[in-house]
Amino acid sequence: MKTLAFTRANDLLAPAAPSNNGLKISLAPLTGVWNSTNEETRGIIKLILSDSEGILLVQCFGAGETSSIDWGTINGEAFAGTVGTTEGVGFKASYDFGFLQTRLAAYLNKRILVVDTYNTFKDNSGRSNYFMRDHFYQRFN
């Protein structure tokens, strides 16, 4: 059996566990329209996550004064809960707005999507790089 490189115990497959043989992570738990639990958020008001032939697409809408601001659609990278599972439980993605880079680090917690943003300004405006967290839910009819 091939010895797997690792950095910590969680990197190792359990002895009896089959490997995923390169299967892609299921995006189904992540996809859909996610609305902020806080209608007065000053951060992200809505996300649309979709599956395009196995690639996670991320579209965010920022909270504006009078209407939301469409940030556009970018590719995201999905993650499972362990090395031996394929169900998507988190993702990361990065927007480059030129004057600002926003990295998203997101995960699911009991069907609440928690999205942390790490925001780095590149425009010498004097604004501090900042962290922000928003929570999202899906509406069901």
């Binding site: 797997l4 490189a5 990197d11 490997s19 995923n20 993650f79 499972a80 599972t85 439980v89 988190g90």
Partner: peptide
């Protein structure tokens, strides 16, 4: 991030070795 004196760490781990391990959070 820091919250109430506790450091909360999220890690996003991506394999590049074709070992069949799933990328995990």
């Amino acid at each position: 991030y820091l919250k109430g004196g506790i450091l909360v760490l999220d890690s996003f781990n991506a394999f590049h070795d074709d070992s069949g391990r799933a990328n995990y959070f």
